[in-house]
Design a protein around this nucleic acid. Structure first.
Lengths: 183, 183
DNA sequence: ATGTCTTTGTACCGATCGGTACAAACCCAC
DNA sequence: GTGGGTTTGTACCGATCGGTACAAAGACAT
């Protein structure tokens, strides 16, 4: 059993229960692995599991979101693709953002740098795409920051109200706003 | 020692560590009360403490945010006051929203209704203020939902990037957007 | 000063936490 | 089949969890 095979289940546990709430017994149940196996695969224990999950999230976003935003042509299409990728990743508002959970809550000390980098690179990549589609530097940065924040907020609100449509509506509004600013 | 005296410290512990992360030893240290006193004041234990904190937050927002939004005159001024109250409450982005933390993370089952109500009433009150200042019903609801989501997202982003200014910028942008839509 | 009632600290409970030790089970080249 | 290395389950560790019991300490009217 290798890391890649357990990472999805592992990520889901951290997402649903946070870092502290994700007990080894929950993790064991979710992955189907006993403690022996878990500590064989992740000698560093829970901290290494979380770091590994964060790492995979990071590289997924790098590949499927950040890089296309930075380099995709045309940039308007790259932005549109981002919304689609994000909608899929967050299951249209039914899935929570683990990085957001870590940012708000627990273990902010351990993972501060990973959390910071995730959001900083998202905002930077989106700003770059906006800049490439003709916006000024400052407007691009502001719109990018606003967009990422709104996505995160929509996840919170959708989860709180138990209404995933809130998330879908937010994405639609953001698409329209960016299109209006660009077109 | 009564409830009101310990609620602020109590709220801060839950904010910073989440529900599961807020251990009784942390709570005891933060409030200066031993277990005996804590269970004397809150016979229901941790769950009652959290419920009590949520209750106080709820009534603070009802008094300082929701009611003014619903009834304040003129409505444009009520909206502006909301931004000021919110900026103060969240310490300009340095303080996290406990209800948002609970929504994303832990104990979502115990407090689901309180969390839902907090956000639903916020959105409804803001929508009412917008409606009173001349917007259509649907536009008001959409703008209100978008605004509350953006506030929450800005908190996440400001905390993640360790840049409180992100929160201030978001509030400024929202003010401008609402002013533009109204004026 | 006394007695009563409230408030507090502390010792303790079983359960569970994250983590370790280690032996049985498994795999596979030979 | 046999031996050696890997993978796994399980028993166990000290620490801490949320919660309870209860007696000492404090407050206050008489």
């Amino acid at each position: 059993m290798d890391r890649a095979a357990v990472l999805p289940a592992l990520a889901e546990v951290f997402r649903e229960h946070g870092y502290e709430g994700a007990s080894l017994s929950l993790i064991s149940k979710a992955t189907g692995l006993g403690k022996g196996s878990l500590y064989h695969v992740f000698p560093g224990g829970k901290a290494e599991m979380a770091a590994c999950v964060l790492d995979e999230i990071d590289s997924w976003f790098e590949t499927n979101v950040y890089a296309p935003l930075r380099e995709g042509e045309p940039p308007g299409r790259a932005v549109s693709d981002m919304f689609e990728a994000v909608a899929g990743y967050f299951r249209s508002g039914r899935r929570v953002c683990l990085v957001g959970v870590l940012a708000l809550g627990t273990g902010r000390d351990h993972f501060a740098e990973a959390v910071r980098s995730y959001f900083a690179r998202w905002v930077a990549a989106l700003a770059e795409a906006l800049r490439r589609s003709g916006h000024g530097d400052m407007a691009s940065a502001a719109l990018a920051e606003e967009t990422v924040a709104q996505i995160q907020g929509a996840i919170v609100l959708a989860r709180a109200l138990d209404e995933p449509e809130v998330f879908a509506r937010a994405l639609a509004t953001l698409r329209a706003r960016i299109a209006a600013a660009t077109g």
